[in-house]
Design a protein around this nucleic acid. Sequence first.
RNA 1: CGGGGACUAGUUCAUCGGUAGAACGCUGCGUUCGGGACGCAGAGGCAGAGGGUUCAAUUCCCUCGUCCCCGACCA
Length: 409
Amino acid sequence: MKYSKLFPKTLKQTPAGAESINHQLLVKAGFIHQEMAGVYTYLPLGQKVITKISDIVREEMNNAGGQEMLMPALHPGENWKKTGRFNSFDVLFKLKGAGDSDLVLGPTHEEIIYPLLAEYVKSYKDLPLYLYQIQTKFRNEARAKAGLLRGREFIMKDLYSFHTNDDDRNAYYQIMKEAYIKIFKRLGLPALVTQASGGTFSDLSEEFQTPTPSGEDIIYVCESCNSAVNKEVYEGSDCVTCGQKYKETKAIEVGNIFPLKRAYAETFKLNFADSDGEDKIVSVGCYGLGISRVMGTIVEVFHDEKGIIWPESVAPYKVHLIGLDLEDEKIMGEAEKVYKQLQVEGIEVLFDNRIDVSAGQKFAECDLIGIPIRAIISKKTESKLEIKKRNEKTTEFMSLSELINRLSK
RNA sequence: CGGGGACUAGUUCAUCGGUAGAACGCUGCGUUCGGGACGCAGAGGCAGAGGGUUCAAUUCCCUCGUCCCCGACCA
């Protein structure tokens, strides 16, 4: 991508109203644009990051046997009346459809997937099933806040697993938990597995919590064995696993996994004929992960006074190529060559090809956007590239083939 | 949903009773050219909406709306 064509350009000033770090930096650097409280446009750079995060999650869900599908954002109100949540779910967006029918904007998808499965699953031979989607959710939060951390419209991955019995469900729960641990490792985002309450819906749950001062949850972390519990289920002052003292920390909930109670399966008659011929109720697990919240959390955790520092796996581009002295046709020609060659090698590159912009401005914008590797071509670099990593201070000179070599490892 | 703060140019902010000004950004010209350069010229505003007080309201008062923060909420 040539920077001269990229929509939009970065901002020099922080917009009024953007208080949290992720909001400020993501808006300034041109990743998102706020439309109203808790609702954002993902601009081209932001959309690239969302896609990278989604792809990592998708791969791990597929590895765990998940089948991706896409359920509607618009739900029949009737389904929500059946579960009683049409009135009890207090952040539910409700609207009227044709013929004065009640509709709901989906904040979660039990009301869709249970009846869907009830229609198709008839036999133990149809189970187990692991179905997921990456989809936009709507929750009418009393107070949207903190940029992407708490929106009214947000992107979430939700997987629902369906089993013939609780033991099978619990075994799969462990597989999902491992998949989540792997996902956060690949995202480069620290996340602690935290014991939490299950709400009205589950007896227990586990959250994935990223410790950071901007978090709105309070968790207790054992400094000795690294196990953690949410404040909401906290009892006593010692670690339940190893007996050491807990330390209180703020954290952002980036994922939540839990076995579901039987109530919804009963409501929607989600049952099947088991191998013994007996009619049984399906056992269900639910596994959520906030895609857009992860994006905001990464910025909260990885930034400095100059801008964002993306982990390599989710950065919008691998290399930020800066051309200086581009009014010199020879240097422009070389820079174009490097740009094309990187693309041929499959290395995603953002090429700042602007002629009428000062070096200082290009550096400032580069640091703000936060791509992992900065490569400079100028009259100083001769046939080499000047390479600097976003998270390091030192620069080194290397040839294009050396850089390609290093990146392909 | 309770409490607090803020709405003036595309953006960030000044003016705080006499119908608006800067910086950044944008356009043109010139000078610069390794850390968001500089000069000159130019375009760009019914001051969130409505009502009141006043000879006169961006400015004071009220209502509403929107955004941000603290709290409650987060099944």
